[in-house]
Design a binder for these strands. Structure first.
Lengths: 175, 175
DNA sequence: ACCTGTCAACCAACCGGTTAGTTGTCAGAA
DNA sequence: TTCTGACAACTAACCGGTTGGTTGACAGGT
């Protein structure tokens, strides 16, 4: 038997991803997570404190990954929305995680890393507008809200396509 | 004590609305619903069969109400999105109910009444496009998807406004 | 010898659902 | 009008199983 703290944590996080995405926070079962990870249930409490603790750390990691994976391109917002859409479509689990989190914790309780990344993106869009590179029809904050909201279409609508998202954002920022 | 089947069902549905909207399906507690309604728990099983049965009937009733309350206006899609937005903002519980339902049951399992109402709306938009009253840039189905999706902004974004939704839809259908 | 990661066994609380029995209501007989 | 019996509405108590969480013993690396 190998003893590796980090490897065990990783296996638990991996199993937790499946479980939380499928059943939500209230519906997730700690025993199932432990079994899927091939670990003992007690490890969850040793490393993450509680079921909620495990969920919070998992969400934070996944959000950080997504932020790194899909950087914003203020000069190509339709493309940004499209790339976000593809990411969400390819890994629907993150969106489900975030949805459950928001449903159970409200608008507040947004992870600090996410809030900060959001501020940076608003600033980037604001600069592009000031320099006249994109439309200033909407203020930067609203515009980012709309763009992100569009990329979420994969979650709301069964037959949504990337092309539809990109065309919609194009029309939003058209001069 | 008064014995009134319909009144009891109504009280249970009322209590269930609060409980399911707050905690979701898995998180809702049957005992809490019964206590909040001032009824005995067994009544839930007598009248609705199960926790899920209670949820399904509740969702169906609420969706029917919303469909009646906010009729589509194919010639004023921005206004339609705005009115939907206001309804969702004033009664956030329905959106939470629907979100939990979709998370736990997937895209399938959409109540028949909702699917049929959706078809009618697509047809209404299609006619308006054929007669040249609104843009045919998007096909009717995609357009309705986008309009409804926009109205959902109340759920996704903390500081969304009706005006923002209406302006966005206006740009989507602009010639 | 001594940490430290691991785990089986355990626990109290809780959960959805059932049941045996009680009570209010009302149609219809007297 | 009054009584009554039958049924629907209702209830308290309970049930089997499950839940998140704990702990004491043990094994492996140093």
């Amino acid at each position: 038997m190998v003893r590796d703290k980090e490897a065990t944590k990783a296996k638990l996080l991996d199993a937790a991803m499946d479980e939380f995405a499928q059943y939500g926070i209230a519906g997730a079962r700690v025993d199932r997570i432990a079994a899927k990870a091939g670990c003992n249930k007690a490890m969850i409490y040793a490393y993450f404190g509680s079921k909620e603790g495990l969920f919070d750390e998992l969400l934070k990691i996944q959000i950080d990954r997504m932020i790194q994976q899909v950087p914003i391109t203020p000069d190509d917002l339709p493309g940004y929305a499209g790339r976000l859409f593809d990411s969400y479509r390819d890994q629907p689990q993150l969106l489900r995680l975030a949805a459950y989190h928001r449903l159970e914790n409200g608008f507040d309780a947004i992870p600090a890393a996410e809030a900060e990344a959001y501020r940076h993106k608003v600033e980037a869009i604001g600069r592009a507008q000031m320099e006249g590179r994109i439309s200033a029809e909407f203020n930067a904050n609203d515009l980012l809200d709309m763009v992100v909201h569009m990329s979420i279409l994969a979650f709301t609508t069964p037959n949504a396509t990337r092309a539809l998202v990109e065309r919609s954002v194009s029309r939003l920022i058209a001069e």
